[in-house]
Amino acid sequence: MTDTLEDDLKVMIVETLALEDVDPKSIETDAPLFGEGLGLDSIDALELALAIHSKFGVRTKENDERNREYYHSVKSLAAFIREEQAKAPASGA
């Protein structure tokens, strides 16, 4: 159950980026998304950022030096979303 967000993200990556030959289950949670991992590029990252915003309401801030860290793997992306979602009610209060 703890992997729900990670699984959602894997499905979202495959659907958003139309990765026809990739099974979401085959994406390793820790593996790099870019370069030698899943082989995504900068435009994929941009599409992913837009999809994350529309699905999870989490915005990727421009010029945040940690963006590379957040988008490193499904695991880091899930941690980023959880962190931002946890901040949201606090900032709204």
Partner: peptide, 13 residues
């Protein structure tokens, strides 16, 4: 360049 930053990629484009 964006240098791997997804939000900067939009600006570059």
């Amino acid at each position: 360049g964006a240098g791997g930053d997804p939000s900067a990629a939009a600006r570059v484009l």
